[in-house]
Design a protein around this nucleic acid. Structure first.
Lengths: 340, 340
DNA sequence: ATGAAAGCGCTAACAC
DNA sequence: GTGTTAGCGCTTTCAT
């Protein structure tokens, strides 16, 4: 490993000067500048990020903590976040907590504030206590994809109106004439995804459409779980003409379940999800869904985090930035209710 | 931020002692140990990873460089790699080069050897020159998923016999009676994925089955590109009864293309891919594919990298570890050739 | 325009 | 058992 000192020696100057030319700081004579640059080149010198980080206080890195990198939504978000981070010369490192709070805590303890200047948190299954502690130690955090613009999580966040997303989905189905609609919620009843379901229920209620306890299943954000839930739903309520899922993955699973029962989509069953992940476009038939502004939210989250970092962390209130509203993307999985 | 020194002060000892109790090194009296632990607790002290890294020489981190985190194969690999890395207390940070060699180089320059002890490289579109330079600076690198166990890339690597994978795919199709087989290769003709296609061609040739220039398309590892390529293939050669794709994503695209042309799968067209990503299981119909030992390869790559790190980097030859061979996973997308 | 020196927070000999 | 002392590689005043 080549060090600053070695470069300095070869160029016949002191480390301070090398540092200056590299960071384009202070005044350095053109001649020495060249000599230094040549030495850097000859030695293949690369600044030691860790040493620099120690001296400066932190590394130019943002951490993105996700609960499961296997969920295709996260990579899409990560991609957008990275693009924004790199604009300001920062690296984005993604930390996969594997749905395990202990791992999440380990990352938070170790990475936050040392290897990274700040952390973006995405459904990482960490309780607010851990987050608060990290925050207290002075590392900025922003919650990505908070689901309710109307209530603050008490932490800096980027919110998307998922209640509205649920509303849009319900309205779309209603407009197509559906009145017997099953629901698949990809979380616990009181989980983070509840707002989506509430929006859905609220809209049904306002329209005077019944939605009973047996019309809903609570499960996880995976294709297979959506498949299973849809099977149950379709068996329990054969009169269902549509299924709403709070996430695209289980919606896809519901489509498969329907297909396996010989139902045609959308003739026999309409299916709609939320998010508009890439798979929604690529499935057959294409999945109708409520598109969430993933890229915008990611960019906003990074920008907010960077603002907090500049700011030094002393905010009065936990700031919230609200991303653009979700919009309906109609594809081939939803259609008018079948004639009776 | 709480520092070691502050903890030491509060516990009435020196930093060295605190360090010792924290790292369970050296001998420390039980009483002082408790006092130190209490102080740590009271102050909410967390070791500063950067400082520790500087003092020790490197951070307990492995970097995984991928060209596009959006490709669902990478997360699966990353997941397995992370599990292995964490066994030895290391973190895995994934760096997305976004298919851009410049970004790749930036990551390599900045992260390798400073923020991370070693780097795992996955199709990251970096040329061997950059890798060699990094290696020369003393940071171990291992190439993951090298496609040819029989030829060394000149860098430490984990190889999977993708030639064999192509062979298996071809053999499967042949056994089902197909003789008019189209191919979709998810890379340039001379790209990394060439071995798969070579294995395929070799087997066809050995069986005396013709495969002409017009029966193949070179494209990219994405559903949409597979879709487009399949459309071209199916138009140009309407007599095709099967399509082999070097990757699952384009294979999925081919299935969609067939469906859109009113062809039934597998009655009218058989489709087979390589890798066995999760989507292959979840698609309808399920995609027959040649399963690659992703988890095993990831574990081996991490272990090899860790070995190189321990070793200090002075290897005689670039070591290669060969992962278990690919195996056929037959699902519903392949069937006997349609009767004529 | 360039150099000297202190220090970021921690570890690791070695001395007491 | 516990303290002392040197760094790790870099940045950053402050002199010169």
């Amino acid at each position: 490993m080549t060090t600053l000192a070695e470069v300095a020696a070869r160029a016949g100057v002191t480390p301070a000067t090398v540092s200056n030319v590299l960071r384009k700081r202070g005044k350095v004579g053109e001649a020495t500048r060249q000599r230094v640059l040549d030495a850097v080149d000859a030695l293949g010198y690369r600044p030691h990020l860790t040493a620099r980080a120690l001296a400066e206080g932190s590394a130019p890195t943002l951490a993105l903590m996700v609960s499961s990198i296997a969920n295709p939504f996260y990579p899409e978000f990560a991609l957008a976040a990275e693009r924004t981070a790199r604009k300001n010369g920062r690296f984005l490192i993604v930390c996969n907590t594997n749905e395990d709070p202990a791992i999440a805590r380990a990352y938070l303890d170790q990475i936050a504030g040392t290897l990274s200047e700040g952390v973006l948190v995405m459904n990482a299954r960490l309780d607010f206590d851990d987050l608060d502690k990290t925050l207290a130690r002075g590392t900025p955090i922003v919650l990505c994809m908070w689901e309710r613009p109307d209530v603050s999580p008490g932490l800096p966040c980027v919110a998307v109106d998922f209640f509205a997303a649920g509303t849009l989905a319900a309205r779309h189905l209603l407009e197509l004439g559906h009145t017997r609609i099953g629901a698949i919620v990809a979380s616990q009843r009181d989980g983070v995804q509840a707002a989506r379901y509430e929006g859905f229920c609220h809209t049904l209620r306002a329209a005077g459409v019944a939605h009973a306890e047996q019309d809903v299943r609570f499960t996880r954000d995976e294709v297979q779980h959506g498949y299973d839930a849809a099977c149950e739903l379709l068996s329990a309520c054969p009169d269902l003409t549509a299924i709403f899922a709070t996430n695209d993955l289980p919606a896809l699973g519901a489509m498969h379940a329907a297909a396996d029962r010989g139902m045609r989509i959308p003739e026999d069953l309409s299916v709609i999800g939320i998010t508009d992940i890439q798979l929604a476009r690529e499935s057959r038939p294409g999945l109708s869904t409520i598109a969430v502004p993933t890229d915008a939210a990611a960019a906003m989250a990074v920008e907010l985090l960077e603002a907090l970092i500049e700011n030094g962390g002393r905010e009065k209130e936990a700031p919230m930035r609200v991303a653009p509203d979700p919009v309906l993307v109609q594809r081939a999985s939803t259609g008018r209710v079948r004639g009776v």
